[in-house]
Amino acid sequence: MRYRRRGLDITSHTLLILCVIVFFLPVWMAIVAATHTQSSLYTGVAPFWFGSEGFGNFLAVLSDPVGRLGTDATRLLVNSTIMALGIAVGKITIAILAAYAIVFFRFPFRMLCFWAIFITLMLPVEVRIMPTYKVVAGLGMLNSYTGLILPLIASATATFLFRQFYLTVPPELLEAARVDGAGPWRFLRDILLPLSKTNIAALFVIMFLYGWNQYLWPLLITTESDYMTVVISLKRMLTSADNLVPWHTVTATALLAMLPPVIVIVLMQRYFVKGLVDTEK
């Protein structure tokens, strides 16, 4: 139902415009700051229009070592992308297989396994950070992509969501697949995965953002600049030897760090919304 009242339309549009201004103002100031020189940002007046550098600061952080990091933003973005993709793909793969086994196979302690997985929702990374670090260090996975990804790829939330979805699959579909001679892997590949594609897309967006925004774990296990992510690099960039924060570099790097998540959300927005509201059966 849509209301067509002139006063209500004006009020709602005014509120929407104000909300857009409030949310976009920090981004606009970051864009503007990224086009100025360091000296022009310490004049005591925050600039609200573009400076003389243009895209020069962006090109500089992409190609030259940034501050005390010893590496360029391109390397940081690649590390963050590898970590986010590895976590998203790993979480979805493990969740699909775990949910498939719990729903479609009958084995002893099946529900106990599910509740054991579900209970891990109460144990976030911060709670188990020290034993996890000890295991990763003992296996020699510090300063490696494996160490960044492997401890974070199990997801009780994704397993629960796939289990709930698979419980809605009609039993007749499984019986029809058996009559056609489809084995367990073929049933998963040819029937369940196509039915789950919107759910997979929705969870991929969530898990990608989860992996991209990780701060504590990469900060703990990475000491070499070759494996640092762009999120933890922003904190390190705020410290400088001359006590002057290079805000033109920081804002340029922050804006570059925003691009991959924004691209993923824009490209998969339709599938994300559909996966949350439509079962596609």
Rank of each mutant, 00 (worst) to 15 (best):
N143R: 04
L77M: 12
Q38W: 02
N199V: 11
P47G: 02
L76F: 08
V32Y: 02
D180Y: 00
Y215W: 06
F109K: 11
L76D: 08
P261Y: 06
K197I: 13
K134P: 00
L152A: 13
T251K: 12
A177N: 06
S63K: 08
P151G: 03
G56D: 00
A99N: 05
S240A: 15
A34Q: 02
A177W: 07
E175M: 11
A116C: 12
I17H: 06
I149P: 01
V127D: 06
I96E: 04
P65A: 06
F58T: 01
A177R: 09
L259A: 14
R106N: 12
T120I: 01
L267I: 11
Y166C: 08
Y133C: 10
V22I: 15
S40Q: 01
T132G: 07
I265Q: 12
V262G: 13
R110M: 07
I206V: 14
L139F: 14
R270E: 15
T198D: 00
P194A: 10
L121S: 08
S52L: 07
V273Y: 07
T223Y: 07
N57G: 01
S52N: 10
I191A: 08
R128V: 14
L148W: 03
P260T: 05
I149A: 01
A33M: 05
V20Y: 06
E175N: 12
V66G: 03
F48D: 07
D72W: 06
T132C: 03
A158V: 13
L234Q: 14
A30D: 01
G54D: 01
A116G: 15
R68D: 13
M1A: 13
A257R: 09
S40K: 00
F208C: 01
M268A: 12
L77C: 06
F109H: 10
F208T: 02
M207K: 03
L123Y: 07
D226Y: 11
L193Y: 13
K274S: 15
L148I: 06
I265V: 15
I94W: 04
K134C: 00
F204T: 03
F204M: 02
Y133M: 10
M130A: 11
S225I: 00
M141H: 10
T11G: 09
I17T: 13
S240V: 11
